[in-house]
Write a protein that binds this DNA or RNA. Sequence first.
DNA 1: GTGGGTGCAAACCGTTTGCACACCA
DNA 2: TGGTGTGCAAACGGTTTGCACCCAC
Lengths: 137, 137
Amino acid sequence: MNHTTRTLNRSKQRDAIFNYIITHKTHPTADDIYNDIRKDFPNISLGTVYRNLTLLTELGSIKKLSYGDAAEHFDGDITPHNHFICNTCGSITDLQMENIDFVDEAASRNFDGKIAGHNIYFYGTCPSCLQNIHPEH
Amino acid sequence: MNHTTRTLNRSKQRDAIFNYIITHKTHPTADDIYNDIRKDFPNISLGTVYRNLTLLTELGSIKKLSYGDAAEHFDGDITPHNHFICNTCGSITDLQMENIDFVDEAASRNFDGKIAGHNIYFYGTCPSCLQNIHPEH
DNA sequence: GTGGGTGCAAACCGTTTGCACACCA
DNA sequence: TGGTGTGCAAACGGTTTGCACCCAC
C-alpha cells in the first residue's frame, strides 16, 4: 500500500466483517467479531479481522472507539453521536442527543487551534444496573 | 490489597512520581515518567512506576487519559477540564472551558441511566501546527 | 517482626506484521 | 500473470504480576 492509487477488491471476509458491525449495536471488539464470525468462516484468522477493521476505519465505513477499555471497540453507525459507558457492567450505549455543536464552539473560544471534532464519553450507571441496585421501581 | 483497611506507607519513588506528574503539564505516559525520573532514581523499575500510577489513579490523586493513543497518559490536574489532541503532532492541550454541565444535561434528556461525568476529547490541528502549515501569519 | 514497597524478569494481552499461498481481475 | 487478500505464526509494545529482598512502622 503506497501513495499511488490502489485497487480494492472485495472479499467475503471483509463483507462479513462489515456486515457484522453494522448489524450489531454492541460496539464489538476485534475479538468479539472474530469469535462470532468464525461460525460462518471457520478458517478466518484474527489477523484478517484486524487488517479489515483498520481498512474499514481508514475508508470511513466504520468508527473506532477508544475510551479506556483495554481493547478497541468498533461502531457501524458513523453518524454523529456520543457514547455512554456503564462503570458497573461495561456496556456501551449510543446517546442520540440534540445538536451539540455548541460544545465545539465553547472549546474554540479558549483555543487558537482548529477544532475538527470531538468524542464525548459519558460514564455512570446504566438503566439496568440502576434497576439491580434499587430493584423497587 | 484486600477489602479490609490497608495502611499506606510513603515511599520516595511514589512521591517523586506524583511530584513529576503535577509539575509537568505534558500529560506523560508511564514510559515518559520512567525515563525522566530515572535521572534521580537510577534503579527505579517500570513496574514500580506502573504500580504507583495505578495506585494514585485509584486514590483520585491523578487522572488517566485514554483517547486512542496506544499508551495511557496521566494528568496531575484533577479539576474538571477537557483535552485537545493534535492530529498532526500528537500534543495534548488542556482546554479550560466555561461551565459545560449542559452537556451532561443534554445527554440525560435522552438517557434513563445515571450520568456521573464525561470526558471530551477534541481533535484537530493545534496552533503551532497550523502555523507550520500556513507560515504567513 | 510484620506487612507494605521495590527491582527484576517473565508473563500477559491486544495488535501488527512477514511470509507463503490463494484468488480475482 | 500480477497484484490483492488470506491464514498462520512470530513479533511487538504497553502493562501486569510473581517473587525475593528491603525498609518503614
